[in-house]
Simulated assay, not measured.
Amino acid sequence: MLEVWNWFIALASHKATLLALLFPLFIGIVIYTYAGRRRSRRLESYRYMPFEDEDGERLRRGAGDEDGKKE
């Protein structure tokens, strides 16, 4: 019984177990996220979100005044 307890509390034995559990979970999340066509398009539309101003309008380089907004 003591051997089982020592195996259970040993950190080295849990690394492989966690890898075996969490890696398929990660792969499953990636497949779920990008497998659906609508979901994939929606996520791709978010890629420019950091470059949008507060009104949701994309900043245009060289268009308009100094801060990039067109009036």
Rank of each mutant, 00 (worst) to 15 (best):
L21I: 14
S45N: 07
P24L: 04
S40E: 00
D53I: 05
Y34H: 11
G64H: 08
L22T: 11
S45W: 09
R60P: 03
R42N: 05
R38M: 05
F23H: 03
R37K: 12
D55A: 15
F51A: 11
R39F: 07
F26V: 12
I27N: 04
I27E: 01
M49S: 12
A12W: 09
R58A: 12
I27S: 04
R37Q: 04
T33G: 04
L19I: 14
I29Q: 02
R58T: 09
R61G: 12
V30R: 02
A63G: 09
F23G: 04
G28A: 10
I29N: 00
G28Y: 04
F51K: 01
D55T: 14
I31T: 03
A35M: 08
A63V: 15
G62W: 13
E54H: 11
L21Q: 05
S40P: 01
G36Q: 07
G62S: 05
R61H: 03
L59Y: 12
R41Q: 10
S40H: 07
D53G: 14
Y32R: 07
E52D: 01
F26P: 06
F23W: 11
F51G: 01
V30Q: 05
A12D: 06
P50Q: 03
G68I: 08
Y46E: 06
M49W: 12
T17G: 08
G28P: 07
G36F: 01
R39C: 04
R41W: 13
L18N: 06
A12H: 02
P24V: 08
L25A: 13
L19F: 14
T17P: 02
A63M: 11
R61P: 06
S45F: 10
R41T: 09
Y34S: 05
L11W: 15
A10H: 13
S13I: 07
G56S: 08
R61E: 01
A35E: 02
D65F: 15
A63P: 00
G28M: 02
Y34G: 08
L59K: 05
L59R: 09
R61D: 02
E54M: 06
G28W: 02
T33Y: 03
F51E: 00
I31R: 08
D53Q: 05
F23P: 00
Y46T: 12
S45I: 06
L59C: 15
L18C: 08
